[in-house]
Structure formats: C-alpha cells, structure tokens
C-alpha cells in the first residue's frame, strides 16, 4: 500500500518536473530556435543563392558563390590577414598576461591597483579604443612616431598595418586573460612552491615546472577562446582602416569582408558564403586544438 502510494507520488513528481522543466526552458528554446538555429540554416541556404533586393527574389545559383569566394584573391588576402592578426594577438596577449598574473598572484603593495589598471581597456568600447590608437599611430603627429623619432606609416603601410592593429588587440585583451589566469593560479596548492624552494628551484624554474603544467587547463581554455575571438576580428580593423586606406586590401579580415559584402554591397548570398567559410575554418582549428591538447594539457 505504502509502496504503491510512493510510486504514484513518484510519477506525479515526474509529471510535474516535466511540466515545470518545459515551462522554464521554453523561452530560451524558442529564442534559440528563432535567433540562432533558423539563422544558421538560413545563412547556409542563402550561400547557395544570388541575392535579390532585401532577401526577396533570390535566385538559386548552386555552388557559384563558393566558387567565387574561393577563387577571389580578396578572400585569401583576408584569411591571411586574419591569421596574421591571430598569430600576434593570441601568443603575445597570453604570454604577457601570464607573466603579469604570476607577478600579481601574491600579497604585495598595489596589487589591486595594478589589476584595475590592466583590466581597464576591457570596459572601453573598441570603437573608442581604435580611435585613440589611430591617433597614437598617426604618422605625422602621432605620439608613437614622436617617441621613436620616426615617420613610420603604421596603419597605411600594407606590410605592417595588420600587426599594428594586432598590438591594439593585445593591449585590449591582456587584462581579461590576466584575470582568468589569476583565478586559475589560485587553485594551485602553495605547498608545491614551498617544496620546490626547499629543493632549491629558482623562480623561473618554478614557473616552467609547476605553474605552467598546473594551470595548463586554463591556458588551453584561454587559447581556444582567444583564437576563436581573434579569427572574428572586426571592430578594430573597421575603425582604424578608412575605405580609402591603401593598406585596406591586405588588412581586411574575413569578418570585415563579410560585413562589406553583406551590408555595404548588399550581396547577402556572397556574404553568407564568406561566413560559412569562416565557420569551417574555425571548426577545423578548434578540432585541431582539441587533438593537440592531449600532448600538453595536464589534468590532475
């Protein structure tokens, strides 16, 4: 009798969990389907169409857009620029912020002031940040050239413009990575360092033999998310590069190209194709990193 009642109660509970569960999850699911799932399908669909006005009157063109995207040198220039950006931004921002995190991960004077300063660029709009840096980089009147006593065309020389922009990226993201590393470092037991000190290991040695392996999961996480973020660079390039800038062709990123073809030239089919191309690139790189992590990430 008691057992039966329990069972009835159990199913009543299960039913109520079912109802409440769906009730709670429904707004998010509807939102995700409308805002994300449908758009992915639609973007992929559009990449096979030539765009009519405002998405109406589209003509099916098969893989034409893909052929055009892949045979256009502009795409490969953009891919190269995107990679160049990522190759500077990711390793430099990670190395610098890791060093800062290690230095700040102890009781010391001014610790929170330093943390506040390094994190500051994170709360500024990239649109404003890019304008300030553009002024610093100004070849005639900029502070940087004045300090260096040079006349370097930081953002209009096609050979260096993307690296100059990557410097802005590094400056903007250091604080964010640093904060993530500090919270990773706080999990490392203090005894390890004490034991290492007794054994006579120097600070540098401790950094490479204890700190790096023990926070390698955090480093891996920051690496994956930063690479994905860097491959989507847009704001800084858009704000720094005028449309008339001679270095634009060699500096525009894939997302910049996507913006330009979708919303300036209004060729949304072509724009969709570029963004699908970007999705594939990001997926390949992420899978590659997942495989590579087995070689260097240490999970305790």
């Amino acid at each position: 009798m008691a057992g039966k009642k329990q069972k009835v109660k159990g199913t009543a509970r299960a039913r109520s969990e079912n109802i409440w569960g769906w009730l709670f999850v429904l707004p998010t699911m509807i939102g995700l389907i409308v805002l994300n799932i449908y758009p992915i399908i639609n973007t992929i669909k559009q990449s096979f169409f030539k765009t009519g006005d405002f998405g109406r009157g589209d003509i099916f063109v098969g893989v034409d857009n893909y052929v055009k995207v892949l045979s256009n040198s502009e795409t490969w220039d953009a891919l190269l620029a995107t990679f160049k950006y990522a190759i500077i931004e990711v390793p430099f921002s990670i190395a610098i912020s890791l060093v800062l995190a290690v230095l700040l991960n102890r009781k010391m004077r001014g610790r929170s002031a330093y943390r506040t300063i390094f994190f500051l660029p994170m709360v500024c709009a990239p649109a404003a940040v890019a304008m300030v840096w553009r002024w610093l980089f100004n070849s005639e009147f900029g502070l940087l050239n004045h300090i260096l006593g040079a006349k370097i065309q930081w953002v209009s020389n096609p050979k260096i413009a993307i690296y100059a922009i990557a410097v802005i990226g590094v400056w903007s993201i250091i604080g964010y990575n640093m904060v993530l590393f500090i919270s990773g470092l706080q999990e490392v037991p203090h005894d390890y360092y004490e034991a290492a000190s007794i054994d006579g290991a120097t600070g540098v040695r401790q950094f490479f033999s204890i700190t790096i392996p023990l926070i390698s999961p955090t480093i891996f996480f920051v690496c994956v998310t930063r690479i994905i973020g860097a491959l989507q660079v847009f704001d800084l390039i858009f704000m720094v590069m005028d449309t008339g800038n001679p270095a634009l062709q060699k500096t525009q990123s894939l997302v910049y190209l996507f913006y330009q073809s979708s919303f300036v030239e209004r060729n949304m089919g072509y724009g969709s194709t570029i963004v699908v191309f970007l999705l594939v690139i990001i997926m390949i790189i992420t899978v590659f990193q997942m495989i590579a992590q087995k070689k260097w990430v240490y999970y305790s």
């Binding site: 994300n36 758009p39 559009q46 724009g271 963004v275 992420t286």
Partner: peptide, 18 residues
C-alpha cells in the same frame, strides 16, 4: 542546443536576424 549555439561564430546569425 545551448552548447551548439556557443560553438558557432556569432556572425553567422546576423544576416537572417537583420
């Protein structure tokens, strides 16, 4: 569905949202 959305670059949603 939640995890899937997080793995996809956000630009892929923009044209249909627009």
């Amino acid at each position: 569905l939640v995890l899937f959305q997080m793995m996809v670059p956000a630009q892929i949603f923009i044209i249909p949202q627009y």
